[in-house]
């Protein structure tokens, strides 16, 4: 019997005391990692809900810090700015990436490989390196310190175009042929046949764009100056700078509020987000 034991499938071996102890140890490590990962988040929420009164130092549980964050900064405007910038970046990237990806996948034209190669090459250029000339361009266009300064340069997306090209390559060619035979022109073939089928791919591009632009800090720091044009992360850092260490709960209430849309997207779109983030690894 002992000689046969190692040959048994893995799940049967888990019942031995040694294996059970191993499973318990593994779970313990995973639970510790979970605590370290979620700890700061839980602390943030709890602290935002338990502000201490200035002067007396008494803890007053409730939503007063959430009220304060609207009183201390124009939080509604920050939120609206974030929604506008992120929303337009998301929509712009989804549409332009789908169109360019379709052409690169489905239409043969001279220089296509060159165009595709050039688009891929821009992925290697870090945004921080082009920021000085982009800043000049934006100034030259008369857009400095506007929300458009954040949106316009962020619409063309090399990675999104790459993803959409791969997506269109996976769609059957017969559909387009059938549409052509039925008399549909190239525009109709795209808009009524391919674009609807590409929506899952576009969702990945959109969710990636949301995750990036909702959270971005570097470009807003450079391209927007007045607080009325800030988006959430920059606005919260500015708020913290203005308040000092006095009102921890107020700043954290802002952090919690800014996390909510990201959390909603995480809950409904975790799978496309996961696929999008790791898609770069399999190219």
């Amino acid at each position: 019997m002992t000689a046969l034991a190692p040959a048994l499938p893995a799940r049967h071996r888990a019942t031995t005391p040694v294996a059970a102890a191993g499973t318990a140890a593994r779970l313990l490590v995973l639970l510790l990692a979970t605590a370290l990962t979620l700890g700061p988040v839980v602390w943030t929420v709890v602290t935002a809900l338990t502000p201490t009164e200035e002067g007396t130092g008494a803890v007053r549980p409730g939503f007063s810090a959430f009220v304060d964050v609207f009183a201390q900064v124009d939080f509604a405007l920050l939120f609206l700015n974030s929604v506008l910038v992120t929303g337009l970046c998301v929509a712009g990237q989804m549409i332009t990436a789908a169109m360019a990806g379709y052409v690169l996948a489905a239409i043969d034209f001279r220089g296509r490989q060159l165009v595709f190669g050039a688009i891929l090459a821009t992925m290697m250029v870090p945004m921080q390196v082009t920021i000085v000339p982009v800043f000049m361009l934006i100034r030259g266009m008369g857009l400095s310190d506007t929300l458009l300064a954040l949106i316009l340069p962020a619409v063309p997306t090399a990675f999104g175009t790459f993803l959409m090209r791969q997506y269109f390559l996976g769609l059957p060619v017969e559909l387009g042929e059938a549409a052509s035979i039925d008399g549909a022109g190239p525009f109709r073939t795209f808009f009524s046949v391919y674009a609807p089928l590409a929506l899952p791919g576009m969702a990945i591009v959109g969710i990636l764009a949301f995750n990036y632009h909702w959270n971005e800090f570097f470009r807003p720091l450079i391209l927007t100056i007045s607080e009325q044009n800030h988006i959430l992360p920059l606005g919260l850092v500015t708020l913290q700078g203005n308040l000092g260490t006095g009102s921890v709960s107020t700043v954290l209430a802002g952090v919690v509020l800014s996390m909510i849309p990201a959390l909603v997207v995480f809950v409904i779109g975790q799978r496309p987000l996961r696929e999008g983030l790791t898609a770069g690894a399999s190219k």
Binding site: V115, V129, L137, P156
Partner: peptide
Amino acid sequence: PTVLGLGIFTFVPI
């Protein structure tokens, strides 16, 4: 949109 956009905001800047 993509080619012009990347040209203006990535290629020219680099």
